[in-house]
């Protein structure tokens, strides 16, 4: 499967007695945008985090670009840098300026020169529409601006894919769109994306595929139109009826 940027095979994960991921199988191909939906506690975040090895797994295989995730160490760090992550709480480094937040990875991990990283970072910040905020600290920005900065930080790593874990859930409603617009733009440019979100409008417009999870399992997998108009399982129907109210 050389085309799969991310692939999971029979992945299982337990938190003590809780079976958080059950036999997860799925692939994300290059250029694909996959939306992950499902009720709270169904394992969406856990799945994202295992791909980045922020969580370990108990069985199964996760591959990034065809390479199995290695154990802790330099190799893992390298693979991690190929899959960027955007968090619900933004998680910008609070002691660094926005610019330094974006350049830290390129300088320390990609070994770019300071000047080069800086120039590119300003380019990414412009792309997400906050080029004028480069020298501020995270606490001085609005939530929407912070999340866009976090996306710029992800882009600066020139990743093969970006994982979004509910990127708009912590935002005030009026800021949701500015972030979704940036994400839509990225999708159009061909970025491979795995997006955990409840924004069904975004899923309809942008996603190539929707994965529906419940109780640690992938229950349904379909193109967005099919998923939204004709969900096959009761659980998905139930979920959609609540979320689309």
């Amino acid at each position: 499967m050389p085309d799969s940027v991310i692939s999971m095979d029979k992945v299982n994960k337990w938190f003590g007695a809780l079976h958080a991921l059950r036999d997860i199988n799925f692939r994300v191909s290059a250029g694909e945008v996959v939306v992950v939906a499902g009720p709270s506690g169904s394992g969406k975040s856990t799945m994202c985090r295992t791909i980045n090895r922020l969580e370990t797994i108990d069985s199964g295989t996760i591959r990034v670009n065809g390479e199995t995730l290695p154990a802790e160490g330099r190799e893992l760090a390298k693979l991690r840098s190929e899959v960027a992550m955007v968090f619900q709480q933004f998680n910008l480094f609070s002691h660094l300026s926005i610019l330094d937040n974006v350049t830290l990875g390129p300088i320390k991990v990609l070994r770019q020169s300071g000047a080069e990283a800086c120039k590119e970072a300003l380019g990414f910040l412009d792309r997400v529409g906050i080029g004028d905020q480069a020298h501020k600290f995270p606490a001085q920005l609005s939530g929407g601006q912070q999340q866009r900065a976090a996306i710029a930080r992800a882009l600066a790593m020139r990743p093969k894919a970006i994982l979004f874990d509910e990127p708009t859930s912590a935002l005030d409603p009026e800021m949701v769109n500015e972030v979704l617009e940036v994400m839509t733009q990225l999708a159009k440019e061909g970025m491979t994306m795995l997006v955990v979100t409840h924004e069904m409008g975004f899923a309809r417009r942008v996603a190539h595929r929707v994965i529906f999870m419940d109780a640690g399992q992938i229950v349904e997998e379909a193109p967005p139109e099919a998923f939204f108009t004709n969900p096959k399982t009761d659980r998905a129907r139930d979920f959609l009826s609540k979320i689309l109210m």
Binding site: N52, L54, E72, G73, R74, A77, K78, R80, S81, E82, A84, M85, F87, Q89, N91, L92, F93, S94, H95, L104, G105, K108, V109, A150, R153, A154, M157
Partner: peptide
């Protein structure tokens, strides 16, 4: 979250400590 963000951009353990 600060540490997870640092790890997710590919910083090694020592780099996470030193820079974040």
């Amino acid at each position: 979250g600060q540490i997870e963000a640092a790890r997710s951009i590919g910083l090694t353990f020592t780099q996470v400590l030193a820079y974040v």
